[in-house]
Computed example of a mutant assay.
Amino acid sequence: MREVMTKTMARNVFYGGSLFFIVIFLIMSAQSVQYIKNVSTANAELTDSVARGKHVWEKHACINCHTLMGEGAYFAPELQNVMARWDVAEDPEDAFETLKGWMESQPTGIEGRRQMPQFNLSDDEIRDLAEFFLWVNKIDAQGWPPNDAG
């Protein structure tokens, strides 16, 4: 083997290595997209009500206090599994009634406790937000949150 690499050899190593890693990158990207499609939302049908609930979530900046699948602020509880914690993950009407009762009771006024503001949401907004939380609850979060309390 030669001790000196020629320009042609260096160019061939560069182009060959670049091509190899570009192909690996494309294969891994395609595999990741397929995995996300099949696993994360396999049991969760996205409806117009869910989309409107996500809009309510964004409009009132809920993520400024709450987390959703680990993303957001850690001031208030994680809400990915809130419907399962409240044991209403199977019935949309129960989810609506429970969320409505919770939202209407805020702020609680308990001394020394962080207070959630009163957003004065309409019944339609609360119903859509409940649908959004039901949809999020169905996503395979792969063990998140690490405890049931969120």
Rank of each mutant, 00 (worst) to 15 (best):
residue 91 D to P: 01
residue 131 E to S: 12
residue 80 Q to E: 12
residue 50 V to T: 00
residue 126 I to R: 02
residue 113 R to A: 09
residue 136 V to P: 01
residue 72 G to I: 04
residue 102 W to T: 08
residue 107 P to Y: 01
residue 43 N to S: 07
residue 102 W to S: 07
residue 1 M to H: 14
residue 31 Q to D: 07
residue 87 D to M: 11
residue 137 N to K: 02
residue 145 P to T: 02
residue 18 S to G: 12
residue 64 N to I: 07
residue 78 E to L: 00
residue 15 Y to I: 14
residue 125 E to W: 00
residue 97 E to H: 13
residue 91 D to Y: 12
residue 88 V to W: 11
residue 10 A to D: 02
residue 134 L to W: 10
residue 100 K to Y: 09
residue 50 V to A: 07
residue 20 F to R: 09
residue 8 T to W: 04
residue 11 R to P: 05
residue 135 W to D: 00
residue 32 S to V: 05
residue 118 Q to G: 03
residue 3 E to T: 11
residue 90 E to D: 14
residue 14 F to E: 09
residue 108 T to R: 15
residue 137 N to M: 01
residue 114 R to I: 07
residue 62 C to E: 05
residue 113 R to N: 08
residue 144 W to S: 05
residue 70 G to A: 07
residue 135 W to M: 05
residue 73 A to C: 03
residue 146 P to Y: 13
residue 1 M to G: 14
residue 149 A to F: 13
residue 105 S to M: 10
residue 9 M to G: 01
residue 27 I to M: 15
residue 96 F to D: 03
residue 1 M to P: 11
residue 55 H to M: 12
residue 101 G to R: 13
residue 115 Q to R: 08
residue 100 K to I: 02
residue 115 Q to N: 00
residue 17 G to K: 04
residue 55 H to L: 14
residue 150 G to K: 07
residue 104 E to G: 01
residue 1 M to Q: 09
residue 29 S to R: 11
residue 25 F to Y: 12
residue 143 G to N: 05
residue 69 M to E: 12
residue 52 R to P: 06
residue 98 T to M: 13
residue 14 F to R: 12
residue 66 H to N: 09
residue 101 G to Y: 05
residue 115 Q to G: 03
residue 90 E to A: 14
residue 111 E to L: 13
residue 71 E to Y: 11
residue 101 G to D: 01
residue 107 P to F: 02
residue 123 D to G: 04
residue 45 E to K: 15
residue 30 A to E: 10
residue 10 A to R: 14
residue 109 G to W: 09
residue 19 L to E: 04
residue 97 E to L: 14
residue 68 L to R: 03
residue 113 R to K: 14
residue 125 E to I: 01
residue 133 F to P: 00
residue 4 V to H: 11
residue 9 M to Y: 01
residue 86 W to T: 07
residue 143 G to H: 07
residue 2 R to G: 06
residue 113 R to V: 04
residue 117 P to T: 06
residue 53 G to Q: 02
residue 87 D to K: 15
residue 119 F to E: 06
residue 60 H to R: 14
residue 149 A to H: 11
residue 51 A to P: 04
residue 81 N to D: 10
residue 35 Y to D: 10
residue 40 S to T: 11
residue 120 N to P: 01
residue 91 D to E: 05
residue 52 R to H: 00
residue 146 P to W: 14
residue 46 L to C: 01
residue 130 A to D: 01
residue 21 F to A: 10
residue 150 G to V: 03
residue 80 Q to I: 06
residue 107 P to L: 03
residue 149 A to W: 14
residue 64 N to M: 09
residue 140 D to G: 02
residue 97 E to Q: 15
residue 126 I to K: 08
residue 140 D to C: 04
residue 88 V to K: 12
residue 92 P to K: 13
residue 41 T to S: 12
residue 35 Y to N: 12
residue 22 I to Y: 10
residue 41 T to W: 13
residue 110 I to M: 13
residue 73 A to L: 04
residue 33 V to S: 05
residue 144 W to M: 13
residue 14 F to G: 00
residue 37 K to T: 05
residue 71 E to N: 08
residue 30 A to S: 13
residue 129 L to F: 13
